[in-house]
């Protein structure tokens, strides 16, 4: 007791920990305030109905998209009309790099995105302002906290025939293909709502927002859980596995047969 008192006195009025505590408080409050402010600005930015966003989007659209889709979204021979496609469609197509197209082909392919997230949102705001359409998804359906079992059943019934049961994608007709699903939850949700390119539409009457949340949950669960059966070979199923067995399994059998019958030198 007396020792503790002595030490306190020696340090004077301030505790030796005071500096550290003060620094911590200062850093925390600055960081917290910044987080609050930046969070606030993020919200302000995602308010895609603001006039500023729409104007910004119009400029970007005229410079990058209008040559195919028309100055007033009316479309042309090179691209469809965008009236009424909604913000979700723009966010999906531009956000996954499918638009602007690299070239005309069987389908628009995923590639590194050409616009920042903010620019994408601005484009979406502009397109949405000229005709009502599906909006950006509500974040509470994107949290991946739904029912993975229900999502799995819905995925197998509605999606797996094209996208493969593990979401690894698959071939369609005439050079088209269903891509592997490695997109963000928002893009997965948007794809279901809008039915991009040749994918059918799964509107909220077909798969409710909760169903979509369950499907996203299943996909995330599937992506994160390791395969119990060993190396997945791209999850492509019998084609990849059969090819592996054909080359390595039969190859090994042929090699052993050759060795068995060869004369010892």
């Amino acid at each position: 007791m007396s020792n503790a008192t002595k030490r306190k006195n020696r340090a004077g009025r301030r505790s030796p920990l005071a500096t550290v505590a003060l620094l911590a408080i200062g850093l925390l409050s600055t960081g917290g305030a910044y987080a609050l402010i930046s969070g606030g600005t993020a919200e302000a930015q995602s308010d895609i109905n603001s006039q500023q966003m729409i104007d910004e989007g119009e400029k970007l659209f005229s410079a990058n998209c209008a040559s195919c889709h028309g100055l007033n979204l009316e479309g042309s021979e090179s691209g469809p009309s965008l009236i009424g496609v909604g913000a979700a469609s723009v966010d999906f197509q531009v956000g996954t790099g499918r638009m602007p197209l690299a070239q005309q082909g069987p389908q628009g392919e995923e590639k590194p995105e050409q616009f920042t997230d903010e620019q994408t949102k601005a484009l979406a705001a502009y397109v949405a302002s000229l005709g009502p359409g599906p909006g950006l998804p509500d974040p509470r359906y994107l949290d991946g906290e739904g029912d993975a079992a229900n999502g799995s059943e819905l995925f197998r019934i509605n999606c797996a025939m094209c996208h493969n049961v593990a979401g690894a994608g698959g071939a369609l007709t005439e050079g088209k293909y269903a891509p592997a699903i490695d997109a963000t939850p928002a893009h997965i949700y948007e794809a279901m709502v809008i039915g991009p390119q040749n994918m059918p539409v799964f509107n909220d009457a077909n798969l409710s927002p909760e169903d979509k949340r369950d499907i996203i949950t299943y996909l995330e669960f599937n992506r994160e859980s390791p395969s119990p059966g060993g190396y997945v070979l791209g999850s492509l199923g019998p084609v990849a596995e059969g090819l592996f067995a054909w080359f390595f399994g039969l190859g090994a059998i042929v090699a052993i047969a050759v060795w068995l019958t060869a004369k010892s030198n």
Binding site: M161, C162, L172, T173, E174, K176, A178, G195, Q197, N198, M199, P200, V201
Partner: peptide
């Protein structure tokens, strides 16, 4: 495997 544009 339905393609909604080509209707294949």
């Amino acid at each position: 495997l339905y393609e909604q544009i080509t209707h294949h």
